[in-house]
Amino acid sequence: MTEPSVVVDEVHKDFKLRHTHSIKETFLAAVRRKPLTTDFHALDGVSFSIAQGEAVALLGFNGSGKSTMLKLISGVLSPDSGAVRTRGRVAGLIEVGAGFHPDLSGRENIFLNAAILGMTKRETEERFDDIVAFSEIEKFIDTEVKHYSSGMFLRLAFSVAIHTEVDVLLIDEILSVGDEPFQQKCLARIRQLHDAGKTLVVVSHDLDMVSNLCGRGILLREGNVAFDGDSKRAVELMRQ
């Protein structure tokens, strides 16, 4: 038996929702003794584990806690209680291009963003040509990113992330970027990574795509696990 890639153990995560947006509103609310904030229980004792090489979809409607869970697995957020443990290198396609600098060229941003994603300079150099070819923006690679269209930016950012040396790949709605041929190319690349034994954790509103890409679905409702099993069954339950 191999060690699991991801273990989520009794995880709780709360957020404070503010009800005022200015000093005046805050003052009036305080005078009227109205609450300034309320606690939102994003995750309420969630537990599951993901085996090495599994492809798992996190499903649920808006506010169910799925994106929060993905950020906890990535390390962007920390749980209020409980624990999240991961094995190997984890890379998140959560906020693609978040580390890009507009005044640097595409070439410079590849090295910058790859370093943020945990790659060494040597690893990036070895993959550089593949990253540029996948992005299909070779002619503009030495142009400052601030002159890129949104489509060019996302192509390059996704290409860097998808070529990262990774054990666990986290994907959040990223396949909605670009035109359909590029989306299909991205999906094919993700399937290649899964076939190579990488662990996938996917969040997407495209239920047909995730049920085909992932064998297992974890359905979250109001911060709790409502179902954990076959992905197609999880999608059926969502659609009821």
Rank of each mutant, 00 (worst) to 15 (best):
L58V: 10
S81A: 13
E54S: 08
G65H: 06
M69W: 11
V84K: 06
V96Q: 10
G60K: 00
L72V: 09
I73F: 06
G53A: 06
G99D: 08
R87W: 11
S67E: 06
T86D: 04
G63W: 15
L72Y: 12
V90P: 01
P79M: 15
L77K: 01
A57I: 01
R89V: 05
I73N: 02
G88M: 14
I73M: 11
R89P: 06
V90C: 07
R85E: 15
F61P: 00
S74D: 13
L72D: 14
L77C: 01
L72R: 06
D80T: 04
A98R: 02
L58Y: 06
S67V: 07
K66N: 06
R85W: 14
G82A: 10
E54Q: 11
E54M: 01
G53S: 05
S81I: 00
G99N: 04
S64K: 05
G82R: 10
R87K: 10
A83D: 11
K71W: 06
L93A: 13
S81C: 10
K71H: 10
R87D: 12
G60T: 03
I73E: 02
N62T: 03
F61H: 13
G63M: 13
S74A: 15
G88N: 12
V96F: 07
L93C: 13
F61G: 05
A57D: 07
V84P: 08
P79F: 15
A91F: 10
S67R: 04
F61M: 02
G97E: 10
A98I: 11
A98K: 04
V56F: 06
F61R: 03
G82I: 14
K71I: 12
K66V: 13
T68W: 00
I94M: 09
P79N: 07
R87Q: 08
V56D: 07
A55D: 03
G53I: 04
R87C: 13
G60L: 00
P79D: 09
G65K: 04
G63L: 13
G99Y: 01
V90W: 10
T68H: 02
S78E: 12
S78Y: 12
L59R: 00
N62A: 12
S64C: 04
F61I: 07
V96H: 01
G99H: 02
L59G: 08
F100C: 08
S67F: 14
V56T: 07
D80L: 12
G63E: 09
T86W: 03
